[in-house]
Design a protein around this nucleic acid. Structure first.
Lengths: 333, 333
DNA sequence: ATGAAAGCGCTAACAG
DNA sequence: CTGTTAGCGCTTTCAT
């Protein structure tokens, strides 16, 4: 259960430690015969370089630390795929630590990664903007992926929520809808942006915005939909703050016997798994998640290599049309 | 951007390196005055112990490596929560590496963790049973969580799929159903167990099992449901291999205008997020995911500490009744 | 109570 | 082409 060292390999191959080290690193100036002996010895022993020792002497760990704010949110699974791909291609490893959707745990995760001497750290998700994070940014390159960092010194990679909301509204208007209501997602920044994007797009089309408050949860969608249905001026389309809320809307409509999309069209946001797997596949706004991760990784890598500060990046969302949106029926138009 | 060392702290506090080390480790035999000086110096400098150096000299990293076979599967998010909790309480850190649902990547992840000298590693999910894994088990304690390991030397923690399927059938029978069909999940071991559990439970109730083939995906459920509806002997209840397949079933029933649960009851398996967020919340079988992780972590920790081999563990699933199951209508009973 | 010294496993000059 | 040497940052006897 104990690991062989470079010295064990050297002894077995009858060479010096340095030679083993060179062979492991793929150096060219080693005689074929000795190289073969070293490789054989290493294999027989099941030798595996000790990354801690390497990190210590090279002053570099080749690990990209990733703090995942919420592992339950599949949004981040794609972001991590992107990070992993970008990072692997240049010899790095992505090491993840869960933030458990909790500021203290995120700080702890950051501490762990810093002690491990990760060469850079990516905060995937709504990193609470703790002072610790800002302080840490002084000792390691940090970049936020999927949320805007409220601190100027920390670059972030996000998608344009304003634009995403506009995409949803434009699609609905193109279909012929005029009474388009929005169930918002609460106080979060992305929620505010989506609401603003919705309002601006409605006005641009000469339409009256109608917003009811909700949240980024199924329940938020349920409450919002109930409010809307109880009103005297029912919409022909609902744009929910995210897919989960849209599921809540669908649930209320199902219970009330309303036909979707016949009587009412619904659009979500995020293109999460539920949007696809829903009994009625959901029209929604997709964020380029994998790209989000790739770009974040690229920024972090750049900062490792030349230490220069980098700019934040904003990516474009796209519309994914599925089965919950159609032209409104004439009778209700 | 460079990290202060224990030596920097010592110099600033006007003491020796060893004294700093003792203070950091919380030793008692240090004068209050010097302790305070060291702590102050460390704080001012933003000192953070280098985990690589510690690992090297202590011959212990206090990291629990976790290979997550599929980050997109929220099942594992809970498992990881369990691991993290169990491990944190004894001073360990859980470090995750994504396996990207791919045998090669899993092997690579294992290699990474081994080089980092993780004190143990947990394979979360259907770890492909590569020889590498078995070989690795010789150099580090390994435990599989959420899938049975096919190798005797590697302990695993799973839930009882046979029992889970029985729970689903019993519930339906209790409700009065007799024509209960099963859409299976293909060749995976857990799929086979669920099918066997279903068949055994049906026979136990004196009922005729009726299995159509499907898969662990939405499409699997769709095909299975279509097969069933096309037949001349429609069931009054369908037990799907997992929640995703159940969503497919719901989708077909929705399209065909069948009322759920009025005309047809549906049960899923896994109690994933979609089961909750579905427009019609899904009755399903829940696996104690967090516990799965906790137990796996406990086993791994035990193996670190006394090196003795440990037994595999099988946990009990439970039934979660939601809105897709009711007593069959008399006319179709 | 405190410091000196050795060494964990490895790399990187530097000699030969 | 190959071996020797001096650390990387830290812990841990062992003296004092």
């Amino acid at each position: 259960m104990s690991h062989p060292t470079i010295f064990d390999v050297a002894r077995r191959a009858g060479v010096s430690k340095s030679l083993v080290s060179m062979v492991m690193r793929g150096a060219t100036n080693v005689s074929d015969e000795r190289r073969a002996r070293v490789i054989a010895a290493a294999e027989e022993l099941g030798y595996r370089p000790n990354a801690a020792a390497q990190s210590l002497v090279r002053q570099k760990s080749f690990v990209m630390g990733v703090i995942v704010s919420d592992l339950h949110n599949t949004f981040f699974a794609d972001v991590i795929d992107g990070i992993d791909n970008a990072v692997r291609s240049v010899g790095y490893r992505a090491l993840l630590v869960s933030g458990h959707l909790n500021a203290d745990r995120e700080t702890e995760a950051l501490e762990t990664l810093l002690r491990l001497r990760a060469d850079a750290v990516i905060l995937a998700g709504p990193a609470v903007d703790i002072d610790d994070v800002v302080a840490a940014a002084a000792s390691v390159p940090l970049v936020v992926a999927g949320a805007v960092s409220s601190h100027a010194a920390i670059p972030s990679v996000t998608t344009d929520d304003l634009r995403g909301a506009a995409l949803a509204v434009d699609h609905l208007v193109e279909l012929g809808h005029k009474k388009i209501s929005h169930i918002d997602g609460g106080d979060a920044l992305s929620s505010r942006l989506r609401r603003q994007g919705y309002e601006a797009a409605m006005r641009r089309h000469g339409l009256e915005p109608r917003v009811v408050s909700g949240s980024f949860t199924r329940d938020g969608g349920i409450h919002g939909a109930q409010t809307l249905l109880a009103g005297d001026d029912e919409p022909t389309a609902i744009f929910a703050a995210n897919d989960l809320a849209a599921m809540g809307v669908l649930s209320v409509l199902h219970d009330s016997g309303a036909d979707v999309p016949g009587e009412l069209s619904v659009v979500g946001y995020d293109n999460t798994a539920v949007a696809q797997s829903s009994p009625i596949p959901l029209t929604t706004i997709d964020q380029p998640r994998t790209e989000l991760g790739e770009v974040a990784a690229r920024l972090a890598l750049e900062r490792i290599n030349d230490g220069t500060d980098v700019q934040s990046v904003v990516l474009e969302p796209t519309l994914v049309i599925r089965d919950t949106t159609v032209t409104p029926t004439h009778s209700r138009q």
